[in-house]
Design a protein around this nucleic acid. Structure first.
Lengths: 302, 302
DNA sequence: TCATATTGATTACTTTTTCTTATGAACATC
DNA sequence: GATGTTCATAAGAAAAAGTAATCAATATGA
């Protein structure tokens, strides 16, 4: 017998549920149908993919290797189908965009309305996650386009920069540093920084700066979002770094905090797109770059 | 309807023959069966893959793009099946090796017998082509492993070096240069070099050396193989560069030519393996590296 | 402990898909 | 204009994949 796409789909489904009935349900077929196809696939490959004793199902080692290949094949097929779609009508259909939390609130509100206006047939589906999860979802064909800070390793993805986003120093009103017009490295020595939770790439950026300037992190506190961070600084609990795009447009922030530029050699993150090399729409992404630049948020440097 | 593997296979077949009847034949089905599946595939994708006026069939632009994707998917599937095979029994089944002509005669005769002895279940299939064709065949899943000079761009392939192969100068017996013990760059100025035909990567290597040393190529002659080249030098028609592995083991050559080492900074090619990233057997290839090194030809530098 | 529920495999039968055979329409060639 | 191509189409046979019902083996809980 020959391996079929359907068998690969059933294989994927079963590997996710590890339960024949549930997997069958998720594929909208009955359990015997799925059992049969899994057996046929195992026969075709000549190796067992699952160990099943009459109560548990689990993926074998070799099954795991085969699963990765199967998953890649299905992704490639899906990309092929979606590219064909986009041939018929570019900028239509579903576009799943993933954005990191320290970028999303400052870019999406301005750009998305323009996108919807320019491409009414494009159904945008927006997802906010941290970098690791974004990359994982991208590689598993759950997202089409990422918007993130490019200063990280993007294993197996293509990327292109959109704009630079310099970091600024934020202190409480009346903080000793706030009298200065520009902050130098030595000004930060032994200052206490409030930072984001683990997993935010901006935390890593900020930590690098702190280490470089011999500053300290406030112990026992990690903010879950930039707004928490801003509130904590405003309440006088410490100082922090904020991305330009997060502060440049917000009069409220400028009243409750002091925002100070750093020296010439300003620490900066590069914001950009990333996508799977086999994506459909790589053409369209290059067009989107222009639009995202046209509607760049205040504070971003082209 | 859903796209099937079989549809992709028929698509590939038709793209090769551009004739429904022949394509059907090559797939061991009747022409209407293939016609139908091609139609279904076009319906699924929503775009025409072939233009057919009642006498000619040709691939559309979009069809070409889809073809590349289809071909990659089929290769991925074939790799998956073959990896499953190799799980059952490593070093068994067909291994298709491609080698460039300036390497094949000096490596294969020594290594292949050992391979056959070590892995009696491995069916070696050896193919001699120039670099460009090897890469093309590799990318089209017609070869599993390449042995070539790594000093070239290997688009989309993985590679690993085996050994270095320095070039030596070959002159006719009694040639003025043959009195020297070592050849320097300046010795080669205005010397007349015999070189290989276009397409041999060794020609490009040698040309670089010639340009660097301001030497000249003999006009109106291009050798089709190293043995022609050697014969032409022996006949006094000029001098040339030869790879160490081609001369170190051959007493006949040493009688009919003068073989002279070049200066310390010896021009050298690196001989190595290359394979598709998705290949089955990448494990086995790393084992083969050891064996190829164990039976390295005289003249090769590990 | 025994009734009950849940697991994946198996069987018999139905539906769907894919194939073959036979044929038709459009175009070249002689 | 007869003949031999081409690809498309239609009808029915063969193959594949599905459902429904059931089984055997294992857990769970009164």
């Amino acid at each position: 017998m020959n391996i079929s796409i359907r068998q690969l789909e059933y294989f994927l489904a079963l590997s996710q549920t590890l339960n024949f009935r549930e997997a069958a349900e998720s594929c909208f077929v009955t359990q015997p149908a799925l059992s049969k196809q899994i057996q046929l696939l195992e026969d075709s490959l000549g190796i067992p993919l699952f160990e099943r004793d009459k109560k548990h199902v689990l993926l074998t080692d070799k099954g795991q290797v085969m699963l990765n290949r199967a998953s890649n094949i299905l992704t490639a097929l899906s990309d092929m189908e979606r590219e064909a779609q986009s041939f018929k009508k570019p900028f239509s259909g579903k576009l799943r965009i993933g954005v990191i939390p320290t970028i999303a609130p400052y870019i999406l509100p301005t750009v998305v309305p323009h996108l919807s206006r320019l491409y009414p047939d494009l159904q945008l589906s927006l997802h906010e996650h941290r970098t690791d999860q974004l990359i994982h979802k991208m590689l598993h064909n759950q997202l089409d386009l990422l918007i993130l800070a490019l200063n990280v390793e993007l294993e197996g993805l293509c990327s292109t920069p959109l704009y630079d986003d310099p970091f600024l120093l934020a202190t409480p009103i009346g903080h000793p540093l706030s009298s200065k017009t520009v902050i130098h490295k030595k000004d930060l020595k032994n200052q206490e920084f409030l930072l984001l939770e683990d997993g935010h790439c901006m935390r890593d950026h900020a930590l690098e700066v702190c280490e470089f300037a011999q500053a300290k992190e406030v112990p026992d506190f990690r903010a879950s979002s930039l707004s928490t961070l801003i509130a904590m600084v405003a309440a006088g609990n410490g100082i922090t770094l904020l991305p330009s795009i997060a502060v440049s447009d917000d009069p409220h922030i400028k009243k409750s905090l002091e925002i100070l530029p750093l020296t010439k050699n300003t620490p900066t993150r590069t914001i950009g797109f990333a996508w799977r090399p086999t994506t459909h729409r790589s053409e369209e992404f290059h067009q989107l770059v222009k639009i995202f630049r046209d509607y760049a948020p205040p504070g971003a440097k082209l």
